[in-house]
Simulated scan of single mutants.
Amino acid sequence: MVRTCSKMWAVALTVLLSAAAPARALNIFACEPEWASLAKELAPEADIYSATTAYQDPHYVQARPSLIAKLRRADLFVCSGSELEIGWLPALQMRANNSKVRDGQPGAFYAAEQVERLDVLGKVDRSMGDVHGGGNPHVHWSPTRIEQIAKALTQRLIVIEPANAERYQQQLASFLQRWQTQREQWAAQASSLNGVQVVSYHTSYRYLYDWLGIEQVGDLEPKPGLPPTSGHLASLVSLHKQKPYQLIIYASYQDGKAANWLSSKTGTAVLGLPYSVDPNKEQLVDLFGLYQTAIDQLLAAVAADG
């Protein structure tokens, strides 16, 4: 009898401890910090890890053992897609051997697949350089696309954790309200940027320019993915004589050497724009800060140019 009672108490204690133990947080692997930031808006209780920083080229990432381990434990990954991570994400998926985050599963979420992309190409070959046939993948620079991606990501979170559906919908509603209010303010603030002509490094800000009406008239790369050459930079000097552009822009993960050289030959201002969220910098801590900082810097650079 004593032994039976002891067993009953042991079972009861196990049940109580299980009920008291907190549920395991959803584990989210973000390929880039912009998607880690969005995931935090929608799932603040989740355990979120960003594979890259704002100062890394997201095209080229080493499939390190630490990244493999993180993806192995993930319930969901959130990546740009449109071939941005084609050089490293498939290798991570294969080595992580996590069935939850295989392509086609609910745990595999590609942001660019949720929206209409710019610069979709019908035919791609090596002679064109490192182009993305499925369209420009840098969709986090489009505020309206961010809204669409947030809605799609919320639905994916609900598929993975249906018990938390109401919570996720509430987080989405809060984010969209704040984002749409800010988007209108940004558009008004940046209206003077419409028609500004720039030369950029790569097409990293294609969606930002499309939104603000900025015209990219030249690229520091002779072809996508190829480093600037002296001959190509000389052609951009000639372009400035025919069509004076107001800014030379490169991203925080790109080398500014070519931009500074071109500036020295044309007298055009150089601007190193932040590319993504940096949780360690107050002004770039989230998507709101990233957008505001980029707009402030663009306005200041154009104003200084006169």
Rank of each mutant, 00 (worst) to 15 (best):
Leu26Cys: 05
Thr52Tyr: 02
Ala30Glu: 00
Ser50Phe: 03
Pro33Phe: 06
Pro44Tyr: 10
Glu32Asp: 11
Lys40Tyr: 10
Glu32Leu: 04
Thr53Asp: 00
Ser37Asn: 08
Glu34His: 14
Glu45Arg: 15
Ala36Lys: 10
Ser37Ile: 10
Leu42Trp: 05
Pro33Arg: 04
Thr52Pro: 08
Glu45Asp: 14
Ala43Pro: 00
Asp47Cys: 12
Ile48Ser: 03
Pro33Cys: 08
Phe29Tyr: 09
Ala39Pro: 02
Phe29Cys: 02
Asn27Glu: 11
Trp35Asp: 02
Ala36Met: 01
Ala39Gly: 05
Pro33Asp: 05
Ser50Gly: 10
Leu42Cys: 12
Trp35Tyr: 02
Ala51Glu: 04
Ile28Leu: 06
Ile48Pro: 04
Tyr49Pro: 03
Pro44Lys: 13
Glu41Leu: 12
Ala54Tyr: 01
Glu34Gln: 11
Tyr55Val: 07
Asn27Ser: 14
Ser50Thr: 12
Ala39Trp: 04
Thr52Asp: 01
Ala36Gly: 13
Thr53Ala: 10
Cys31Ala: 15
Asp47Tyr: 12
Ala39Leu: 07
Ala39Ser: 14
Lys40Ile: 13
Asp47Arg: 15
Phe29Ile: 07
Ile28Gly: 05
Lys40Ser: 13
Trp35Pro: 01
Leu38Arg: 00
Phe29Thr: 03
Leu42Gly: 07
Asp47Leu: 14
Glu41His: 15
Leu42His: 07
Ala36Tyr: 03
Gln56Glu: 04
Ala51Pro: 09
Tyr49His: 13
Pro44Phe: 11
Leu42Lys: 11
Ala43Ser: 11
Asn27Trp: 11
Glu32Arg: 01
Leu42Met: 15
Ala25Pro: 14
Gln56Asp: 12
Lys40Phe: 10
Glu45Lys: 15
Glu41Val: 13
Asp47Met: 12
Thr53Val: 09
Ala30Val: 07
Ala36Ile: 08
Glu32Cys: 13
Ile28Lys: 08
Tyr49Gly: 02
Leu38Gln: 02
Thr53Ile: 03
Ala51Asn: 04
Glu32Met: 07
Tyr55Ala: 03
Glu41Thr: 14
Glu45Ile: 12
Ala54Gln: 04
Glu41Tyr: 12
Ala30His: 01
Ile48Tyr: 06
Thr53Met: 00
Pro33His: 04
Ala46Ile: 09
Ser50Arg: 03
Ser37Val: 14
Cys31Lys: 02
Thr52Trp: 01
Glu45Asn: 12
Ala46Tyr: 09
Ile48Phe: 06
Glu41Ala: 13
Glu41Lys: 11
Thr52Ser: 11
Ile48Met: 08
Tyr49Glu: 05
Ser50Glu: 01
Asn27Arg: 11
Ala30Gly: 09
Ala46Cys: 10
Gln56Tyr: 09
Phe29Trp: 02
Gln56Trp: 01
Pro44His: 14
